[in-house]
Design a protein around this nucleic acid. Sequence first.
DNA 1: GATGATTTGTACGTATGTATA
DNA 2: ATATACATACGTACAAATCAT
Lengths: 233, 233
Amino acid sequence: MSTTTVTDSADKTRRKTGPRKSATRSEELRLVIADEIVQGRLSPGTPLEELEVARRFGVSRTPVREAIRELAASGLVETRPHRSALVALPSLDRLRGMFEVMAELEAICAGLAAVNMTGAERRNLEALHETLGELVRQGDPQRYHEVNENFHSAIYHGSHNDYLTEITLATRARLSPFRRAQFRTLGRLSLSHAEHDRVVTAILRGEKTAAEAAMRGHITVVEETYERYSGAR
Amino acid sequence: MSTTTVTDSADKTRRKTGPRKSATRSEELRLVIADEIVQGRLSPGTPLEELEVARRFGVSRTPVREAIRELAASGLVETRPHRSALVALPSLDRLRGMFEVMAELEAICAGLAAVNMTGAERRNLEALHETLGELVRQGDPQRYHEVNENFHSAIYHGSHNDYLTEITLATRARLSPFRRAQFRTLGRLSLSHAEHDRVVTAILRGEKTAAEAAMRGHITVVEETYERYSGAR
DNA sequence: GATGATTTGTACGTATGTATA
DNA sequence: ATATACATACGTACAAATCAT
């Protein structure tokens, strides 16, 4: 039998409960696929065939097409007319450029955060930093990675510039498939934390230029870590 | 020169002639609508009804929907589920943030251009600068505006960082509907050129930091010009 | 607040373009 | 080189949501 009329559990009525599902299928697909790319469950270069994706999610090709269109515009996938979309696979040159921009964007965020963060935001940043210190001591790369994301996000938001925060998050998402191996070694973990310390100190003191420099250095080191693991291409 | 020229009869077959039309209707629509927004022919806040747009271009709703989706992802239009898309109308606060980011992005471009530009690129930048000087003397705001776009684009490309160039161009496009009144006064024209001079001098000398500072100052002044003309909102 | 009109969201069929034998 | 296979591009029909009255 065809899979039409999905029945989808008798609940068609409006449910205010539940984890805030997105209103349209396109949007839901976009979020799920983006997450799969960012989390690395879909590797760069993987083709996204409309029919295959549609079957996988039990929807028609239309919302799939629209989701892919938006993912392409946001840079997570690449499309060419009359050919299947692919999970984005930037050249090494382009990746270098993206890392360079990432360092500058994060530096700008840190500089603005040093000036604009509220007292509560500064205390929160300090707390995150201390948590990360604990995780270094415990040697937990997995959780370090998670809290590290929050640490950086806190600085983006601390800039009090929504547009800056958006493009920085977008760039981070596009780079995320290529920095997976970052915290494999404990040495890198502890070095990262030492660099964070310089960033936090500068921000808490309100020293804009120092915060920028510290963050720029931190991100550049991250890039070098990537280049070592990725090898030539 | 081709003498045949069959005067497009019912020509549905492949026509290699013509001004390189884009491959798909969606893409063509996206480019045309984006241009209308950037050029100011579609004002911020204008609704983009799918059927109306479809009729205007003589196509079905499908490619219109896809074009609008991509424009939304690039920030030129805003969409909300089950409601018509609108030409983007950012709050004044958000606009300030976007101008702030623009200044930083252009500063980064200028700094990298100072280091990375080739000899040919430097000569081309100098030539553009001289042309702009001519246009100031002639008092031609219209053409100044046009060449000014090329001047800034030349610096973006001079960074030799494609990703940086892309997000800078995208931000400029999103801001363009809000800096229309920039060169209304001759005083502004001549001031702009004086600022350019500092930028060009620093770039030609390869002085990264000076180029960044000069460009940052230039863009900030542009913002202030905007704020004066736009009024409170 | 309910109802009809309008507009968006999704499904599906067919045309068209691309790659491969 | 022509033909064939296959995926996307577009159009159309209908369902669902929003809005205007």
